[in-house]
Write a protein that binds this DNA or RNA. Structure first.
Lengths: 195, 195
DNA sequence: GTCTATAAGTAGATAGAC
DNA sequence: GTCTATCTACTTATAGAC
């Protein structure tokens, strides 16, 4: 059915977020004006303020949404008691989740410094919770004598950096499939943690 | 000896670059105005244009200088024919070099998108040359039967991402010394490449 | 080499018509 | 819900005095 003319909030809202995400990722938050976002959406700049109280809140909303999605997707996976299987699951989940939304990943790292202090703390807390999940897997594997990783916290940071780095070079149209990349990285991680 | 009044180009120039580096790293290139840089240096905005033709050239100069330093520092190291020793040398060099200049490392990754196309290509060429050095070490180790790394290019990207990630968490005043961090990462890399 | 002053343009955000 | 118009402030870069 045709919608009532002028009642577009449920379609324009997501379009504003999509345009902001794409433009922030490409040019950076500070370099993108509200007018550019409006032009991408096809409205005038003033109309954007029906969907966000200000530009800062728009940025925070994108980052918060990304972190919430990340933690929710992890929580939706079944618990895995075997540390080796749990680590393999984490590695493959991380690569796949991050490759599926490169722009959100990019701004979630790049634009942290453009968040106001309270917003920054909010995102950092979520990020640390995610890192802690990997650290917990590593500690359980060390405790079970399955892994050789004397510094689980450092190892967790190293593994996450390595995995997120896939986003800098992987292209879906390239030589390697996503499944092949997952296998290559799982093999490197498995060896790196001494299993 | 007191300098001739008004002859400060040899001192103001580096101060402009230092201030720009620090401010770009903290707030981002697009978010920092020439007036802010001038204020940090202690001059008026107009005076900055004695040291750079424009803001874009100032950014490019910082990134180009960083990449030149990186490649020159690598070239200054003695050649190492043993792939294992060469890899150990690369790992420890990379960590140390990058931890010594976190701000330059940060903007060299974050501000690539704010470079004009020709400047971007120039920096990317240097970055690829550096990555190629690690890839060459890995291939020589695989050829010698010392490493198990079926995808040397992917492994090189994974190792560099892991190593550069140290900058996100390491603090000189923290629990671990630089030498300890080098040892922990070298151990992880050594195992990851199957040695 | 640095200053002041200014040109010419753009920023985020708001007001009020429709 | 979107528009046009506008406010105020700030932007890069330049001109010319000293």
């Amino acid at each position: 059915m045709a919608r009532t003319a002028g009642s577009h909030s449920d379609i324009t809202g997501p379009r504003v977020r999509d345009a902001a995400l794409r433009l922030f990722a490409r040019h950076g938050y500070a370099a993108v004006s509200m007018r550019q976002i409006a032009k991408e959406v096809g409205v005038q700049a003033g109309a954007l303020y029906n969907y966000t109280p200000d530009k800062q809140t728009l940025l925070f909303s994108l980052l918060k949404g990304h972190m919430d999605d990340l933690l929710a997707a992890r929580a939706a996976l079944p618990a895995e008691p075997d540390p080796v299987k749990a680590l393999e699951g984490f590695v493959k989940f991380h690569i796949r989740f991050h490759l599926e939304r490169p722009e959100a990943v990019f701004i979630s790292y790049m634009e942290l410094r453009n968040l106001e202090p309270a917003n920054f703390e909010s995102i950092e807390t979520l990020r640390r919770a995610y890192e802690h999940e990997l650290e917990t897997i590593l500690r359980s594997g060390v405790d079970a004598g399955l892994f050789d990783a004397p510094e689980p916290r450092v190892t967790a940071m190293a593994v996450i950096a390595m995995l997120t780095g896939v986003n800098t070079w992987y292209r879906a149209k390239g030589r390697l499939t996503l499944a092949e990349v997952e296998t290559i990285y799982w093999d490197m991680v498995r060896k790196a943690v001494g299993h």
